[in-house]
Design a binder for these strands. Structure first.
Lengths: 269, 269
DNA sequence: ATCGTGGACTGAAGCAGATCAGTCCGGATG
DNA sequence: CATCCGGACTGATCTGCTTCAGTCCACGAT
């Protein structure tokens, strides 16, 4: 019953339950998704790559649904996500939740809470998560030994900020359909960067409720919007699998400008 | 006809037109709004304060409505706002505008575009603006001479990021009334920090159109919401003057948690 | 004096999305 | 085995906000 079929470079068990490829550098991968991602921003030598991979020493596992970081918590560690998805969110007094961002394999997590000692939001794993705890001192040491890495990490942080801004624009000025399309495109682009997806699709462990709390919609409406997108022949999101059928159509609909994710060139020197 | 009356520490010309106090350190002020703001985060010595003030050498003036920074522009300077208000915004393909943030006197502007060499948004003065151009080298020099200033600037940057996140939460999960209340409270808190307002009110040069593009609403609806807030006895925004009549009521309505603006304590050591 | 403009403000009508109240299905639990 | 639960999905109704099409007023330009 447990058939492994390669679809989009992912391991998928048939019959509705999806296993996301951990993205950890098993299976002949030489480097982690983290160094892979940074390598896309700044051309890194093998030495620099390895220096990054050395940060992955204290590997830890987090189960689904148990907060990794809590609002107001101080002296928090930083993490590099090796596998699994997490989300950062805020809860309002009336119980409403707004998801601010997702972190995917290869993403840095908590750089800000470490620099400023207090977290102003919660962080929760969506799936089982493997992450490497990074001590500030190790990080700083790595930076001073290989300064270009500091640039690369800052670069990644700036991309995160740009994503939050783009997310803000979505909530403020895009309607439900455009917003959903934009979000699915963004996820796809991010996953592609770490080798967990292609332009034709990717595995996605998000429920429609999570989607709703990200997009500022109700789950009911997310459901209808996904159906519309499907009926329009643009994209299908079913059984944990996002299949992009009409990339250009989606990009047009969402007014998607992927340059804010690329950042290629400027720092390659 | 040009009577100067002190209201909320501001210079106001009677009969409908308001002049915002420039906030520039005339009138017996010893330090700029910038050092004043940072001083609220990190206890600064007079020497450190003066080092900051010395950054204000190349003073420049920007007229209303002419972009200071354009999307895609590279090698941009950074600025410290001495007086006037500016806004950062993005324009979508269909012409819709989403304002991401406002910068007030004392705010740092373009730290990110300088670090990453390209701006992904537009910056436009709302009022006539006086700003000091800051060269990266001067900034770095100041940082190395007085390292605690670097901390303070980073601290301010982190606050800016927290504000964008809070803004995102507003658009996603607060209704028009809550959103508006939240925004007016945030502005008030920020202005108070640089001495341009009190808990009872402040001068505000924003039109209802600007408000609409900030809050993700139509200008028509902003008008109605402001009327409701006025009728509820919570806050009045008329003739460029925001008067807060029921601070607690507003805070309750908006679920406003001002800690994300304070940041006091943690780094005072 | 007249015109044009930008901003505040309003009523009426339309609609995008929320809310309510469900059904159905697959998997996990005792 | 029955039961419970979470997630996808649906129809009907309601409403918050938009859109449209204006008015009014202050101010500046001609």
């Amino acid at each position: 019953m447990l058939v492994l079929t390669p679809i989009y470079g992912l391991r998928v068990r048939l019959r509705h339950r999806i296993f996301i490829d951990t993205g950890a550098f098993v299976l002949g991968e030489v480097h982690s998704p983290f160094s892979r991602k940074l390598g896309a921003f700044v051309a890194l030598s093998d030495q620099e790559m390895s220096a990054l991979d050395r940060l992955h020493s204290r590997r830890r596992i987090f189960p689904v649904g148990v907060d990794m970081v809590h609002q107001g918590q101080t002296d928090q560690a930083a993490y590099i996500l090796a596998s699994g998805w997490v989300c950062s969110y805020k809860i309002l007094a009336d119980g409403a939740r707004q998801i601010v961002d997702f972190q995917l394999p290869g993403d840095f997590l908590g750089l800000r809470s470490v620099l400023f000692r207090t977290s102003d939001h919660n962080i929760e794993p969506i799936t089982k998560v493997e992450a490497s705890e990074v001590l500030v001192c190790d990080l700083l040491e790595t930076f001073s030994e290989t300064p270009r890495l500091a640039t690369a990490v800052l670069w990644a942080a700036s991309r995160d900020e740009a994503m939050v801004v783009e997310h803000l624009v979505s909530l403020g000025r895009r309607n439900a359909k455009e917003r959903t399309a934009h979000f699915l495109l963004e996820l796809g682009a991010r996953l592609k960067l770490v080798g967990l997806g292609s332009t034709s699709g990717y595995a996605c462990p998000l429920s429609q409720y999570l989607l709703a709390d990200t997009l500022g919609l109700s789950a009911v409406h997310v459901n209808r919007v996904l159906r519309e997108l499907r009926e329009d022949g643009l994209v299908t999101f079913q059984n944990g699998l996002v299949e992009i059928h009409d990339l250009n159509g989606l990009v047009d609909l969402a007014d998607f400008d992927k340059t804010y994710l690329d950042h290629e060139g400027p720092l390659l020197k």
